[in-house]
Simulated assay, not measured.
Amino acid sequence: MKKILFTITGMLLVLCFTSSATQAQLKRFSIGPFIEAGFPVGSMADNYKTGYGAGVGADIKLIAGLGVTGSVSYMRFPGQTVTDDGGNTYKVDALSAVPVRLGLKYKFIPLLYVKVEGGVANLTGDYDGGAAIFSPGLGLRVLGFDFQAKYEAWFKDGTNGFWGLKAGWNF
């Protein structure tokens, strides 16, 4: 898994440096850090508290408002203390993951866009394996600031879903 993360990070950095050097005036490529918060819904809300994360995202503009987007981040949802039907109380382990997402982005007007992403959330810590991701969202980009509201679903042994808010800066 570390090999995959290093490869993806390396590819994003190479794209950043080559694109900014060769197409600086076209501004067809941007990369930057972001932070995000996830507010669990459904069965995920029964076991986990609000999650937080940080990562790096990139955009490549294609044609007529259409673009490709990708990101690598780290998310952590602290576990809650839960009481089962028998009255026993126990603590749910935190859910940590490294989501890798790719998607399409379409700008309706210069500041507003919609976006849909898919990918894999590589579970770490007490959980093992990966979960498939589906994440539609709506965003606002003002100068270099990027704000997004989204719904994200992780599919593994059922669905873990959350509403998310994301804020970042693009170079």
Rank of each mutant, 00 (worst) to 15 (best):
K2M: 08
K3H: 15
I4A: 09
L5N: 14
L5C: 10
T9M: 12
G10S: 15
L12H: 00
L12R: 03
L13P: 08
L13S: 08
L15H: 01
L15S: 09
C16Q: 11
C16V: 07
T18N: 09
T18P: 07
S19R: 09
S19T: 11
T22C: 13
Q23L: 14
L26W: 03
K27H: 13
F29M: 06
F29R: 06
S30T: 06
I35C: 11
A37H: 07
G38T: 05
G38Q: 12
P40L: 01
M44V: 11
M44D: 07
A45E: 14
D46Q: 06
T50D: 08
G51F: 06
Y52D: 00
A54D: 04
V56S: 01
A58H: 00
A58I: 01
D59A: 10
I63T: 05
A64W: 04
A64G: 10
G65Y: 03
G65W: 01
T69M: 13
T69G: 15
G70R: 03
S71K: 13
S71W: 00
M75R: 12
R76G: 00
P78K: 06
G79P: 03
G79K: 03
Q80S: 08
T81K: 14
T81G: 06
T81A: 11
T83H: 05
D84V: 04
G87F: 10
Y90N: 09
K91F: 08
K91R: 15
A94Q: 04
L95D: 06
S96L: 07
S96F: 01
V98W: 02
V98T: 12
V100Q: 00
R101T: 11
G103L: 04
K107Y: 12
I109G: 10
I109C: 13
I109K: 12
P110E: 14
L111P: 10
L111Q: 12
Y113P: 06
V114N: 06
K115M: 05
V120S: 09
V120F: 04
T124Y: 08
D126W: 11
D128V: 02
G130S: 13
A132R: 04
F134I: 15
P136V: 12
G137S: 13
G137V: 05
G139P: 14
V142F: 04
G144N: 08
F147Q: 02
F147A: 15
Q148T: 14
Q148G: 11
A149Q: 05
A149S: 14
K150H: 01
K150W: 00
E152I: 12
E152S: 14
A153V: 14
W154A: 10
W154Q: 10
W154E: 09
W154N: 13
K156F: 05
D157R: 15
D157W: 10
T159I: 12
T159E: 09
W163L: 13
G164H: 05
L165M: 14
L165Y: 09
K166Q: 11
A167C: 10
F171K: 05
F171Q: 03
F171H: 05
